[in-house]
Design a binder for these strands. Structure first.
Lengths: 136, 136
DNA sequence: AAAACTGTAATAAAATTATTTACAATATAA
DNA sequence: TTATATTGTAAATAATTTTATTACAGTTTT
């Protein structure tokens, strides 16, 4: 993977869970995570697109969870932030004249996909509610 | 993770397996992977330190596998190139005054470790010999 | 109409990763 | 015993990716 976004997304979602439906501003979220509010808003775009949260504009606006925390699996959160394949190898351009080079990307991709499937299954064993509960 | 090195390391090891004990030069390896020989040599340092390969200096020198391909698991290769934790979050410095921020790194680390354990177990189901056999 | 927000884009900075260059050391072979 | 091929390693540079900042238009509420 590649993704510090996972930590940010999960952090946001835990905070929203703790807010119990109250609207929370991006500035407040940013204060807990200790990053810039614009970064939070950027991640919120994605979380909204994936149906995890809903936002309200304007004064006293903010964001809340769009579904129950027990219905959001950590695997789904992972999938919302993942970009490339797990082990990276974006710009892999081996020599096509070599029998190994010619085929390695196919075999690597198969391996990555299988591995990532297992990783997501593992994450799916836990919901946001489970994770959030660890914070007492 | 973070690691394009995994692809390079595995590619090198497959090539060495195919060479059946013949010494292979870093230049030749670099030609198949289509990267610079110095990059190959850098990765070889690590592979040597992990006991996967052995090198011979001087004219007609090169590198060969130091153990049977069936005794090198993909999980061990992964572990040789991994640096930080799986999902990245090196510079995560949340607000310690927030009850969530204060504890999130602990919980994230536990989650990452558990997840990575499963990932490595999955990779360990395959040896270098198994992977190399896919190349006919 | 003022204030407190979100939404979004553009830009900049920092960090990471990859590449190149260079050359000393070593071993073989002519 | 000299030329050559090769590893070992470091330093410098370049490219890419990630993260952060700034800015401001659009929305709601008061």
């Amino acid at each position: 993977m590649n993704n510090g976004r996972f930590a940010i997304a999960l952090h946001i979602l835990v905070l929203l869970d703790k807010a119990q439906g109250e609207l929370v501003s991006s500035e407040w979220l940013a204060g807990s995570i200790n990053i810039n509010p614009a970064m939070v808003r950027k991640e919120l775009i994605s979380l909204r697109q994936h149906g995890f949260v809903q936002s309200k504009e304007g004064k006293n606006g903010g964001t809340s969870l769009a579904k129950k925390a027990s219905d959001i699996s950590l695997g789904a959160i992972y999938e919302s932030v993942r970009q490339l394949s797990l082990l990276g190898h974006q710009k892999n351009t081996p020599n096509p004249q070599c029998p190994v080079g010619k085929n390695i990307n196919t075999h690597l991709n198969n391996l990555y996909n299988d591995t990532e499937r297992v990783l997501i299954d593992q994450l799916n064993k836990q919901s946001l509610a489970d994770f959030s509960a660890k914070f007492g």
